[in-house]
Amino acid sequence: MPVLTKEQQDYKRFAKNKKPKPPLLKNMIMAFIVGGIICTIGQIILNFFVSRGLTPGQAGGPTAIIMVFLGSFLTGIGVYDKIGKYAGAGSIVPITGFANSIVSPAMEFKREGFVFGVAAKMFVVAGPVLVYGISSATLIGLIYYLLNM
């Protein structure tokens, strides 16, 4: 970070009080409700697979696939960003939000072509998630391996 002069620091303090704060309580309530609803839908799908004879562990996979499809589809038809406007983290944190982060840049950059546009931009947000998710899981697996040697 650049070092700020005293004048800049003074301005920062002065301007800080002028900035409106996000409506935290309202946002928290919305995130809780929408996040809760999305997870409840997930639970309905999960229970459906369990009722068809899968164990809860096995049902996780198909549930994730269907949730990803729903997130992708709602993004495609232009609904997911409207949910996100009100729900904030409530629709970002669930796996449907992960799907949204893949579909939205993929659609957006179609005009830049199918290689450098759609396929490359698809991972703008999802790429980092995969990189850190897989790396941390692998590191944990390595530690687990070493501890159990």
Partner: peptide
């Protein structure tokens, strides 16, 4: 928006500022 910020259909929340 697509140059400076996010894809249009990304479900993010705009800050009050």
């Amino acid at each position: 928006e697509r140059q400076f910020r996010f894809p249009l259909e990304l479900g993010n929340q705009r800050k009050p500022t």
